[in-house]
């Protein structure tokens, strides 16, 4: 580690590599379902517009429906695959490292010695797909590390190992 003030910029650039492990492939279905719910809201709005606007010409309805239909299909096809390529995670002996997002990308690293709580949650869709989400919180309220779409057995094993390691650390991790 370069300790000289001002000189730290000249240090050899060491890029971060991507985290090693991908999430469960079924997570693509989870994201597709979540995206589908948004699409359903959009479609419901247009159906409402169709029935409320009885007098007007039908052309604007059809144009809007066509455009939103194409966008929705593109979104539902592209977003889950893209996310699946981006969402990755890794737990080393000393740290948890996650990467998430699709258009924007976020990478988080937290040392295991700083872990406060490890939570596992499974929503209705995740339960149907046998998936689970693991949230790792630290003493900072700036946001937890979230690993979405893990196979539920992997998730349980991950929670167990992380809590075991975190419990072994001393101090209050602030």
């Amino acid at each position: 580690m370069d300790e000289e003030p001002g000189a730290d910029v000249q240090g050899p650039h060491s890029r971060l590599r991507d985290p090693a492990w991908q999430v469960c492939p079924r997570a693509r279905w989870l994201w597709a379902i979540q995206g589908g719910l948004w699409a359903a809201v959009l479609v419901a709005g247009q159906v409402g517009w169709w029935f409320l606007d009885r007098r007007g010409p039908r052309d604007p309805h059809l144009v809007v429906a066509l455009i939103s239909g194409v966008l929705i299909v593109a979104y539902l096809v592209v977003m889950p695959r893209w996310r699946f390529r981006v969402h990755r995670w890794e737990v080393s002996a000393t740290a948890v490292y996650t990467q998430s997002g699709w258009l924007s990308r976020e990478r988080r690293i937290a040392p295991i010695s700083r872990i406060q709580t490890v939570d596992l949650t499974r929503g209705p869709a995740a339960q149907a797909l046998r998936l689970a989400t693991v949230r790792v919180t630290t003493a900072s309220a700036a946001g937890p590390l979230v690993i979405e779409g893990l196979d539920q057995h992997d998730a349980v094993a991950l929670v167990e190992s992380l809590t075991a390691v975190a419990a072994a650390e001393r101090g209050d991790a602030t």
């Binding site: 406060q116 709580t117 949650t121 929670v159 975190a166 419990a167 001393r170 101090g171 991790a173």
Partner: peptide, 16 residues
Amino acid sequence: GLFNRSLLTTPADRIR
């Protein structure tokens, strides 16, 4: 949780 099942864990040392 019934529909949203969750498991929360925290080491006892971290309790404030």
